[in-house]
Structure formats: C-alpha cells, structure tokens
Amino acid sequence: MDLRSVECFLRVAQTLHFGRAAEELHLSQPALSQRIRTLERDIGARLFERNRRGVRLTAAGHAFRPHARAVVTQGEKAADAARRAALGLQGRLRLGFTVIASYTELPQAIQAFRTAYPEVEVDLVEVNSPALEEALDRGEIDLAILHPPLERPHLHMRHLPAEPLVLALPVGHRLAGRSAISFSDLADEPLLSAPRHVGPVLFDKVVACFRAAGVEPRIVQEATPVTTLAGLVAAGAGIGFVTRGVATATRPGVVYRTVPAAPTVPLAAAWSHPTPPATRFLEILPQQPT
C-alpha cells in the first residue's frame, strides 16, 4: 500500500472534494483520482461515492479512515527516525577506551554527549589499545580512544591532546621533597613499568630517556593497568611513571613529581567506518593543540 495514496485518501476524506484536495496536495485532479482508484483496487473496496450532490465516504471508507491516519502517523515517525539516525541524533554509540583515557577529559566529553544527544544510547568498554584496534576491525565498537601509533594503518585516526607523565613516589622517598626530578636522579631506583608489549613505543621512549641520562633502568616488576602501578608504589614496591590524569586521583601513600625530560603519552580517536553518532562525538572531543 502506497503511503502517498493513503495521504491522498485522508485529504479527500477531509475535504470531501476531489478538486480542492488535489490543489492542496499539489496534484492534478486526474492524478489524484487515479491514486484513489489504485488504492481502492488494492483494498478491494470502494472508499468514496461520487454523485451530483458531491463526495461522501462509503462504509469501507469510514472503517479505513482511522487506520489510514495511524499508517500515515507511523510512516512519518519512521521517516523522522531514519532522518535522526542519519544525522546521529539517535541510535547507539559503542565507545571503547583505555584506562589512561578514562583519566583525561573523556568522561566529561561522554557526559556532554549524553546531554546533547539523549536519544543516543552509549555503550562503554575499557580495554588496551591493541584490543581496541581489533574490536574496530571486527565492527564490535564504533570509536576508540587509544594510544597511537596504530598497528592497523587502514584505520582512521585523529590525534587528541597528549598526557604528560609524572613520577609516582612513595611518601617518605628520598626524592619526594623535590619539585622536579631528573632521570639521572633515578639511578639504581627500583622501577615499576607496564609490560613492553602493552605500549612498546612509550616503553622504548622512557628507556631512552634513562639511557640518555647515562642511567640503565632497573625494572623490578611489571604492572598493568597504570592504576595498579600506583597502588604498588603506595605499597613501597618501587617508583613508576603514571599520567597526570591518573595522578589527580588521590591515593594515600603516594606523591607525584615532575620529570621535565619525561615523554608524553599520545592519545587519539580511531575508527574504521564512521557512524553518525561517532561523528557527533568527535565534534565534542577536545582538539590537539596546534
């Protein structure tokens, strides 16, 4: 059943005048009459009776009218839903992110997105960067906030503001009283670090900073995620680098100090096939400083 023909029926039923209905519908009267005849043939019953005194609904027309209104209303709702989904105003956003990303401005961006687009359902998943890339390839998530460089160069990426690294020290450590520390100060210190396979580029950058200062890092324990590393520092297991965002989460027994030569942790938004809600979310994310 053609939705436009149902709309034509309703207009004729309202005006009880084919000429006036055709004018309001921006159709010729013969075209309108043809649509009504086709509709009647599809239904298998006459909907109007026309004679010299005018037009009136048949019993079938009266019975059809409320259902016709419902059909048109539902059709309009369906069309509106499709338009809103295409614009990213409703639907679903499947967002993946790393634990480090969760300590950036990402939570505020998610809240702002939910406020701006309340009809978009947001699904959140926290895993490491390699797993996020795999999830993007499999179509399990729409957008990922992770740490470049990407292992899958076919994915699309937009850089986000990087996160500075700070040094986590146990309270009472010999360097805790300093406001800034150099890598040469860390000679022979027991170092806690994430495994290299989790973030090889950052791992190698930190090691390179030690060696540039003439110091060989003494890694005594691997720890992941970075929040676990901070807990081990509090327990006196060693010292370690965490992001500035993680450092803002107060942990008893730990102090954080700046190491000016320390590298930053890169962040990026990555996607495979951009969905409308993902595109909307990218508009809310902070831009990388130029």
Rank of each mutant, 00 (worst) to 15 (best):
P200Q: 05
R152F: 06
V171F: 08
E126Q: 15
F210C: 09
R174I: 13
A212K: 15
R218Y: 10
D185G: 00
P130S: 14
L160E: 09
A176Y: 12
F183Q: 04
L167Y: 04
H147R: 07
E216R: 15
F210S: 05
L186E: 07
A180D: 12
V198K: 09
E140R: 15
S182G: 13
S184L: 09
P200S: 04
L146I: 05
R158T: 13
E189F: 07
V201H: 12
I141P: 00
L132G: 07
S184D: 12
D185P: 02
P149M: 12
H154D: 13
L167E: 02
V166I: 13
L143N: 03
L146Q: 01
V215Y: 13
V201T: 14
V171Y: 04
F210A: 10
F203K: 05
R211L: 10
R178W: 08
R152S: 11
G214W: 03
A135H: 02
I181K: 10
R218N: 14
A162R: 14
A144D: 02
N128I: 11
V201I: 10
S179I: 00
P195R: 03
A213T: 11
P170Q: 12
V206Y: 08
L160A: 14
E126R: 14
G139H: 09
R196L: 03
K205I: 03
